[in-house]
Design a protein around this nucleic acid. Sequence first.
DNA 1: TATGAATGAGATTTCATTCAT
DNA 2: CATGAATGAAATCTCATTCAT
Lengths: 204, 204, 204, 204
Amino acid sequence: MSYEKESRERLIECAKAEFLEKGFAKASLRRISAAAGLTTGAVYFFFGDKNGLFGAIVDEPLRQITEIISQHYMSENDEDFSVYEHTQGDHDGFAELLIPVMYRDHDAVMLLLEKSAGSRYEGTLDSIIDMTERFYVRLAEKYAAAVPNKKVNSYMLHWFCHMQINAFVHLLTHVRDEQQALRSIKPVMDMLVEGWMKYILEDE
Amino acid sequence: MSYEKESRERLIECAKAEFLEKGFAKASLRRISAAAGLTTGAVYFFFGDKNGLFGAIVDEPLRQITEIISQHYMSENDEDFSVYEHTQGDHDGFAELLIPVMYRDHDAVMLLLEKSAGSRYEGTLDSIIDMTERFYVRLAEKYAAAVPNKKVNSYMLHWFCHMQINAFVHLLTHVRDEQQALRSIKPVMDMLVEGWMKYILEDE
Amino acid sequence: MSYEKESRERLIECAKAEFLEKGFAKASLRRISAAAGLTTGAVYFFFGDKNGLFGAIVDEPLRQITEIISQHYMSENDEDFSVYEHTQGDHDGFAELLIPVMYRDHDAVMLLLEKSAGSRYEGTLDSIIDMTERFYVRLAEKYAAAVPNKKVNSYMLHWFCHMQINAFVHLLTHVRDEQQALRSIKPVMDMLVEGWMKYILEDE
Amino acid sequence: MSYEKESRERLIECAKAEFLEKGFAKASLRRISAAAGLTTGAVYFFFGDKNGLFGAIVDEPLRQITEIISQHYMSENDEDFSVYEHTQGDHDGFAELLIPVMYRDHDAVMLLLEKSAGSRYEGTLDSIIDMTERFYVRLAEKYAAAVPNKKVNSYMLHWFCHMQINAFVHLLTHVRDEQQALRSIKPVMDMLVEGWMKYILEDE
DNA sequence: TATGAATGAGATTTCATTCAT
DNA sequence: CATGAATGAAATCTCATTCAT
């Protein structure tokens, strides 16, 4: 393994630790470089700038997560489905798809979703929620169309999307073990689905 | 109105705007003072330091919120109650008590709960969640004791407490109008209560 | 007692404590005023400025000490004396004169001699040593004139003057009780006098 | 000579001058950096902080002085000695050892002993005096044990230790030339030794 | 491939001092 | 007699960033 590669990786490792502990904004490139036995210049050589270093950690996980989610949401729209049963299975499958990706590089995903304030990634969680919302809006409208004298409660919808995504963030933050995570998320998803069915519509 | 009062209040107003926009850590006393037509020294005269300035905005709302919550949780413990019905009414009454307090100074509460990172108040939300959890642990244990062959699912309990509190934070962040807030929170609370009844226990 | 007098005196008292603890330079008028239940403006009203406040504490002791010392040194010069015996008695009498004055306001003298760095009084100790030196130069020259093939060792003379004065400062710093001080200083003075007789002259 | 070395050394040189003139507390890093043609950031790059800059000047002299003194005092304790004669030779040898070290970097030692107030080195002189005292206490007790009906005069002992150390500080402050210093200190040491023998004990 | 030097702009904080009231 | 407000200058320190080598 070449010297440069070692340095680059040491830098990434130390950056992970620092970003996790302090968050992007309060992390210090000096401390990171020093911990890696290098100087700040090295960061600029390898990563361009502070955001670049952060990106080197989170870009790939972000890509994978985005892919999973968008594929999931897109595939949904093509199908002709019975709302209830679908939604049920959907969430289970979704969690089983998403969790392995999130836990493949647990720390990087933590960084991306919880420690990115101040970086160019600070809007990531919000845009995932937005994506989610765009999907559920369509889903809810189909649902509403199928039930007479009901319309979508848009605040519930909004809140539900937050819950949905935050359920995964909460999991990530509180459960380190992937198998345990898969077990823990199940009742959460069940509860959300059931709540969705019952509360997403209101009287017209 | 005397000049001195205007200055102090101008400072608080400008600080609110700055803290809201940038968060405590990235807010600049220079910018705040300048916006108020004063120098940083004035901040130190009136508020002692940066935390003092933040405190002048959030202390009173924090006191009120803490009071409401702790009274609520304490009163619960004295009663002998049928778990289900009680919990039901409880949440409704709780929201109707808490929301007016949170909306009395909407911005200040936002600051306290969402923008306090780096300040001496940064643990506030967590400690509210902790309080909540201590309360719900007892509630859940009573519940479990009444149902044979079931025990508390502690991950669900933990997550539920986050949901419970975050429901209010989400409301604060997304709904400006108090009346609208009171209407919006209702189905949320209902859904949480129902979910609690069904998912807080698991097979032994 | 009028209100203003009380305030003035409270200020002096608190200033003494602050100056003693922190020294002139690091003392804070804000802290002093606050301790006295007043504001910094009050200091400026009563004393003009920080130096004025310090002066209000030390001026009178300084005047007394200066008077004692200069009278002592001047009187010496008028007399026709046998060097040895005179010097002997001299020191004893001197200490017995000086110590009561220094201990009359022990703290003020401490301030003046040990805590005045940064104030307009910071040169006081040096100028007392200078006065002392001017006196001892004359004394030593008379002594030298009386002893053949000897001249004044001017470094010893200089050092001796420091010792002489520092003996009192050391006393002030380490012995609180005046009677004890009078007892403690005696062997010191004896030793200095004896040393003077033997070491102030060197071979020509 | 490389540019980097010049900067660091220019900084040290200018710092020496500033610290010497104003003392640690009142010295300004801005002024120091500006005098060296640099910015305050450079100080932090090279020395970490204000104390670090001071340390870069005084650490090595301090180490040498501490070594000399502690070796000297320790060696004393191992020997079986006739108090008087030993003490005599001791001082002479001590001064001849200590002075070269003190004069190797005269300014740095001045800084350390006279200008360090406010820095992390401000207790240096006191702790040297303490070391000295611990040594002389043992010496005096041995002496007292050898003389019937006498005990140690502890005030004299204390004062004597101050004199002993201050003799060197005074020398440093008043005599720039090392050879001259060696000559000047001799009668001082003789006088102190003689005084010690005569005045360190008092009647029981 | 990386260093080491250095900047420049910014941060919070402290303080003696002034002055209208 | 004294306050309370406010200034303005200075302090130490931190940091991302640049760049010649």
